[in-house]
Amino acid sequence: MLNYRRTLRWMLLPYLMGTVILIVIPAIVTLILAFTQYDLLSPPSWYGFNNFRDLAQFDDILPRAMLNSLLFVLLAVPLRILGALALALFLEHRRRGVGLYRTAVYLPTLIPDVAYALIWLWVFNPIYGPLNQVLEAIGIEGPGWLTDARFALPAIVLMSVFQIGEGFVVLLAGLHNIPRDYYDVAAVDGGTGWQKFRYITFPLLRPWLILLTLRDVLLTTQNTFTPAYIMTGGDPYYATMFLPLHIYKETFEDFRYGSGATMTVLMICGVSVILITVFVVLKGWRNQNAYD
């Protein structure tokens, strides 16, 4: 029996080792490199807080990238979560054809990032792209989308709103976990659809929604990389320059691993601040609700 327990621990080991090698050690390395100058050829040299100072003084793009990333999260996350919730509620019940509808909703999430970016690059093409052609057919003159500084970021938000399969699946599971009896009791008491949602579905779904929102903040900050890299390169006028792309350019195009690490640390701090804010707001909202 003792032997058995020991073997079990060995079976967990690859996963834990992998976590240490691929996540814990890189996290520590990043934190150390943030205070050095490093080009990967010669050994890193200690630079103290100077990276932070240099970035604050000389990097004009960084504040723009931070602002864009923040704006993107603020626009995309609520839309994505509400979209996933609405679709999960709509396609919750078992009916004929529901599997097909769910698959259709999930499909855009399956598409590889590069192909997805290329597809939307074409959809957003100002002249030949299908989106503007459809708009024209109904009498609207579509904007230049990715070439127009006002529309480039909203365009990337728009394409991200189609990839909400993960939240959809999680919320479907959450809905299925709500015991049927609750609804039956509510039906006997003559509860309306809205009341059922307000007093049964929503409160029981809330932990899922909180977790999803937190994960989505993280996902959307990072998922800007491939669209920005493939579709716009950060243009026009840095309207789609997001933090991951800026870090990529600093690190892998300009070979400044030190200040790249510094930006990474700044990004993590920024994301943490957003996460904590979101968490506190969503929690507080729950306490407030408890009194009514």
Binding site: I25, V29, L218, I247, V271
Partner: peptide, 12 residues
């Protein structure tokens, strides 16, 4: 966030 691990993984 995986993007925060790129750089260090590359070095590693």
């Amino acid at each position: 966030p995986v993007t925060s691990l790129w750089l260090a993984r590359f070095v590693l």
